[in-house]
Nucleic acid binder design. Structure first.
Length: 1166
RNA sequence: GCGCACAUAGCUCAGUUGGUUAGAGCGCCACCCUGAUAAGGUGGAGGUCCCAAGUUCGAAUCUUGGUGUGCGCACCA
């Protein structure tokens, strides 16, 4: 017996039952324990941060991450799913700061790094419960108990190992980086944070003269004119840059009062990009007379006097003569040419110089601009190490001028000095022009009034740029979905690769495991905590021990974090008596996530075999915002660590370095660490805007689950668009997936269960022994089960569709195309519901419970439902489980597979698929649909039987087949006979069209002529020609052309005046003549309809018998009752039908055949 | 500025290697069917397939240019 099924389902309730079932029976664990003939399917979980609330976008990610592992598991793979949490980073610190009401690093230090870290560690789990609930409620099967956590000691130590490996290979180095710096808070900001803080402000815009020097180093009367909106950077000027290809003009500034030819004032011959002469002349309001022009290249190397001379005058200290030499005079040898030039304050070239604004000559202050800094690096690289220009910077990290700045500025906030600097320039005759300039400038997002400045910080880098080609090669082997990511966004991103700035001057992160000798400055990387403890003269570990003693609840993992790890020092191997101290930085938390393929296992300190087995991933998925994030961090780390170089390098390292002997070799060919990656589109809110808490443009996931259920949400994600499109969150669409799919399947299921129980179709009795997964071979053992070949066409058809669908779904799912796969499923469920079940209803209702045809119908529908449950299991795991638990488990008294998720995925039996049958059934559907269409046109409702339907086929070959389905067509269209019109000229007009696809390549340019010729020639003539000769000959202006029957198509159009409709394959004509008998039958059908309505009103059971009295003055109704009484009784389970009122029964009054009708219906109580 | 993607019905989206009359669902209107019934079916209205040029016998589809949107990168001296 099947358990009775409610007519309408409340999916959220069913789903929570299923969750409980999975939990109690440990179904996920059992699914992992299944035999896995296909081997492992490896999945990596991109760690979310539990520090923020989950939103619908996370549901999409987690749904996709569930779909494919579930699918693969059913396909015979073993897919472990280790959860993970991203726990480090600035967002966590910010959250804690908010809570504490503090902002800056100074405030954190004042609060105390130790308690701060404790708070961070606690804060990480703030929304943990919500995440876990969401994960479970969505049906994302993932092992939360075994989750890796990036702050855990084992994880940190893996990261350390990898960093040590990179350090030992010379791939981790210290350098400078120009960062957006929040001086007041003492913190660098990420580009994302900077992007949030742009605001339009008015800054001073100054045009400054840089007097050129002659060969003797004396100022000339000609100056470079440079432009800047940050006057405070001028004291740190090091170069002036021009574009080599631009034309520059030397102009005479004719200020009011000056006269051409008169003695020019000091320096007022100016060099400006020719294209900007006019613009600048207009700005200053007087003429700039062009004296001569030159190219940018002609200016290269020319020396100039910087506007402030502190550094210019400063003792360079790098000459060995003993005599002080001011920096302005320092000369060094260019390695490549051997020539000696001044190292700074000269004109250099730069491609980024434009004529969009300014003067075409750019003031270069390398300390305060990323590109400026690049110029310095390039200049430095021309000289021998240390001989080139040093980085100069007159600003301290708190944003004030140091003693290297102009006297009037020292100790003052740089932006406050702009005015005084302008005044000073003016006094020295160097200020050519000044104005206000409106532009966007970044401010700190945490302190609106603090402008950010670009500032050089010491930073640690991973030399990723050296591995660009290998990363690109690795990328080429990855299967990206959608494909364009590979060469598009991700490929481009790799192309423009720069070294990874790894360090962060923060507190809550993986500490950079580098210890520095306090005396020599030499560095050493440490690969684990144990390794550290083995160091000679180890000290400072007591700081942690004391803290733990004082507070035993402290999580042990904190021992590898700040501030405890900072306290650990040891004897320097580089200098006797010196100590090794850790650098203060932590690392970018993206490195943590990118290290997860090995760090999740604690590799190589433990689980070495596990890592080798679970690497690289077959499948990962995240949204497109992870291109620069997790996708990149994984690829970069893996390529550097496990790429072709790694093995070669490891050979050179110490033999006892176990870590390096453990590099994975089994899969060292690209791609790694992931082979297939679905890049999800961004999810936007209902309003098309980015989802944001403040806008409230989405609903909490939990509310969605409670209202519609997780399956509705999942199906919406999987089936409504390819996953990589930008998806606009739509609650209505989620809601719609219920009637469109879930409920439709549910209806088939509930229909089946209702009638199977009524008829005693009980698999428990029909099937003996082990029933396993109730697949075809098991079912075929059952009593009353007949081979498919022996069943009716309708059964064979739906089973063919079923297996065809299964095969198609598997093909698409193997290609990670859930969208197309889902659309195949939808089409099948639609066919099952709207054609198979509907067409088979009479068979299920047949009186003879043992009729072969009836049992065939049960077995067919049963197999369809069982297989569909398996097919949809990865997509809508809850509904699938609900179906399975009743159809398979309950129905066999628990002998079937415990869960649908422990079944094999159906892949379709090709021997059951009958393509021809599909085509033919489509034709029947078309014909029926056209017939209904014709009825609508003639206003003949389907309840009114008609004498006949005439069908005109475009292709006569299907006639015989359609004839064999006349019964089906008769029923659907409610007609007495089906006929095929041979001579259909009275109903149909023909036209002949070219088959463009076939004809195009053959006749090319003559196609339009043929097209029009075919419309002018009489179609019947052409057709008879075709019939007799097998071809058609057209005469065109440029000669005759011969067309075969293959190359033309005949189109039929129903003529006016008939109840007819036409489609591409057929014209269907309904006979409109009504005989008294037909009319009477029509009334009988009306009566059946009315009686059925009554039954429903009376809440009759499906099996209740009734007595009916039909009281009407209409002779037609009486006639109908008399003539079709048996039919009426049969249809309505009526045991007694007469024309009299029934005592004690309230009649239903209505009108039928134009006369009042009183309908008495009474249930027969047994 | 550069790159990637997207632009098709009121809404959400499909549209296979270029091919005849561009589809689906929802919504709207009309009708129908109904013991699966808070479903189902049929029909209708609704499209300059973002614009322009080109290739082609033929373009929603290919090419080029443009417009708009989203995202990313760079720059903002």
């Amino acid at each position: 017996m099947f358990q009775p099924v409610a007519g309408s389902a409340h999916f959220p309730t069913l789903e929570t039952d299923v969750i409980r079932f999975w939990k109690e029976r440990r179904i996920y664990e059992k699914s992992l324990a299944r035999p896995a003939p296909q081997g492992p399917f490896i999945f990596f979980e991109g760690p979310p941060t539990a520090n923020g609330k989950p939103h619908p976008g996370h549901c999409l990610t987690r749904a996709i991450k569930d779909l494919f592992p579930r699918y693969r598991t059913m396909r015979g793979y073993r897919c472990e799913r280790k959860a993970g949490w991203d726990t480090h980073g600035l967002p966590v610190e910010v959250e804690v700061c908010k809570e504490l009401g503090i902002h800056s690093k100074a405030e954190i230090e004042a609060f105390g790094v130790e308690p701060f870290i404790h708070k961070c560690q606690e804060s990480v789990w703030r929304y943990m419960q919500q995440w876990e609930r969401l994960t479970e409620r969505l049906g994302f099967w993932v092992d939360l108990e075994a989750a890796y956590v990036t702050y855990h000691q084992t994880f940190v130590e893996s990261v350390w190992w990898s960093l040590k490996t990179l350090f030992d290979r010379g791939l981790l180095y210290q350098g400078h980086k120009i960062v957006w710096w929040w001086a007041q808070g003492g913190t660098a900001l990420s580009s994302g944070e900077v992007g949030q803080g742009y605001r339009e402000v008015a800054d001073p815009s100054v045009y400054v003269k840089f007097p050129l020097l002659d060969d003797a180093g004396k100022p000339t009367d000609t100056s470079l004119l440079v432009w800047t909106t940050t006057p405070w950077t001028l004291p740190s000027n090091q170069f002036a840059a021009v574009h080599p290809d631009l034309e520059y003009s030397i102009v005479q500034s004719l200020a009011p009062g000056d006269t051409p030819g008169g003695a020019p004032a000091h320096g007022d011959k100016l060099i400006i990009a020719s294209a900007l002469v006019e613009t600048i002349a207009k700005k200053v309001g007087h003429e700039l007379q062009v004296l001569s022009t030159c190219k940018g290249t002609d200016l290269l190397g020319k020396r100039y006097l910087p506007p402030f001379d502190y550094y210019w005058q400063k003792d360079s200290g790098n000459e060995d003569t003993g005599n002080p030499i001011p920096m302005g005079e320092v000369v060094a040898t260019i390695v490549s040419t051997g020539s000696r030039i001044h190292v700074a304050w000269r004109v250099v070239e730069a491609e980024f110089v434009t004529i969009d604004s300014g003067t075409g000559i750019v003031h270069i202050a390398p300390a305060f601009g990323e590109v400026d800094f690049q110029v310095l690096l390039r200049e430095q690289s021309q000289f021998r190490d240390g001989m080139g220009p040093p980085l100069i910077c007159a600003v301290a990290s708190d944003g004030t001028f140091t003693k290297d700045g102009p006297e009037f500025c020292r100790g003052r906030w740089v932006k406050d000095c702009d005015k005084d600097i302008q005044r000073d320039l003016k006094r020295h005759g160097l200020l050519f022009h000044q104005e206000q300039y409106l532009h966007d400038y970044p401010f700190c997002w945490r302190a609106d009034n603090d402008p950010l400045i670009q500032y050089p910080r010491k930073s640690w880098f991973v030399k990723t740029s050296q591995y660009k080609d290998q990363m690109l090669a690795n990328n080429r082997e990855i299967n990206w979905l959608p494909e364009h990511i590979k060469d598009g966004r991700f490929g481009n991103f790799l192309e423009s690769n720069v070294d990874w700035a790894l360090s962060r001057e923060r507190y809550w992160g993986t500490p950079l495991p580098i210890w520095v000798c306090e005396k020599t400055g030499r560095q050493e990387a440490v690969g684990s905590y144990d390794e550290l403890l083995q160091k000679p003269g180890i000290a400072g570990t007591d700081v942690w021990l004391k803290a733990k003693q004082a507070n035993p609840k402290l999580v042990d993992d904190l021992r590898v974090h700040k501030p405890y790890i900072d306290a650990v020092t040891y004897d320097s191997p580089f200098s006797p008596g010196a100590r090794m101290r850790r650098v203060s930085e932590v690392i970018d938390c993206w490195y943590d996530s990118g290290a997860m393929p090995f760090a999740q296992w604690g590799y190589p300190h433990q689980n070495q075999a596990k890592f080798r087995e679970q690497w690289p991933a077959d499948f990962i998925s995240e949204a497109i915002d992870q291109t620069r994030g997790w996708f990149y961090s994984q690829l970069a780390i893996s390529t550097l660590l496990f790429g072709p170089d790694a093995k070669a390098e490891s050979g050179k390292l110490k033999a006892d370095d176990t870590a390096n002997r453990l590099l994975p070799t089994a899969h060292s060919s690209f791609p790694h660490p992931f082979r297939n990656c679905i890049v999800l589109g961004l999810m936007l809110g209902e309003d098309g805007q980015k989802m944001s808490k403040s806008k409230r443009n989405y609903r909490e996931p939990n509310e969605i689950f409670d209202r519609y259920g997780a399956d509705a949400l999942r199906w919406y994600f999987f089936a409504s668009q390819p996953p990589w499109t930008t998806i606009r969150y739509s609650e209505q669409s989620i809601k719609d997936s219920i009637p469109e799919f879930l409920l439709r399947l549910w209806n088939c299921y509930s229909f089946f269960v209702i009638y199977a129980n009524i008829d005693g179709f009980d698999p428990d009795k029909l099937l003996s022994g082990d029933v396993g997964q109730l697949d075809a071979s098991v079912l075929s053992r059952a009593k009353s089960y007949r081979p498919i070949k022996e069943r009716s066409e309708l059964d064979r058809w739906i089973l063919s569709e079923l297996h065809r669908t299964a095969a198609a779904v598997v093909e698409r799912m193997d290609a990670y195309d859930n969208y197309t796969a889902a659309s195949h499923v939808t089409a099948f469920v639609d066919a099952l519901s709207n054609w198979y079940v509907r067409r088979s209803r009479d068979r299920f209702w047949a009186a003879d419970k043992q009729a072969v045809d009836k049992l065939d119908a049960y077995w067919t529908l049963y197999e369809c439902l069982l297989t569909t449950a398996k097919l949809v299991a990865p997509f809508v795991p809850f509904l699938a489980e609900t179906l399975w638990q009743n159809l398979a488990v309950a129905a066999t008294n628990g002998r079937a597979a415990e869960s649908v998720h422990l079944c094999d995925y159906p892949s379709g039996d090709a021997t059951v698929v009958d393509e021809q049958l599909s085509t033919q059934m489509n034709l029947v559907c078309d014909v029926v649909s056209l017939g209904r269409n014709a009825r609508v046109g003639a206003k003949l409702k389907v309840r009114q039987p008609l004498a006949k339907v005439e069908i005109v086929l475009a292709q006569p070959k299907y006639q015989a087949w359609l004839e064999s389905h006349a019964g089906l067509i008769r029923e659907e269209l409610n007609v007495k006979s089906v006929e095929f019109a041979a001579k259909a000229d009275q109903y149909v007009s023909y036209s002949v069209l070219p088959d463009l696809k076939k004809l195009g390549p053959k006749v090319g340019k003559r196609l339009p002529a043929i097209k029009s010729a075919l419309t002018t020639v009489d179609a019947p003539t052409l057709l008879s020609q075709l019939e007799s000769t097998g071809k058609v000959v057209l005469t065109l202006p440029d000669g005759p052309v011969e067309l075969t029957g293959e190359e033309i198509q005949v189109r039929m159009t129903a003529k006016e005046g008939w109840a007819a409709a036409h489609g591409p394959q057929a014209v269907v004509v309904m006979s409109t003549e009504l005989t008294p008998s037909l009319i009477a039958e029509g009334w009988a059908r009306e009566l059946v309809h009315a009686i059925q309505g009554r039954r429903k009103d009376l809440n009759c059971e499906y099996t209740d018998r009734i007595r009916v009295g039909v009281v009407s003055e209409s002779a037609e109704i009486a006639q109908a009752v008399q003539e079709f009484g048996d039919e009426i009784k049969g249809e309505t389970l009526c045991v007694d039908l007469h024309g009299k009122p029934i005592a004690g029964v309230t009649p239903e009054e209505s009108t039928l055949a134009g006369k009042p009708l009183a309908l008495y219906v009474e249930v027969v109580r047994s």
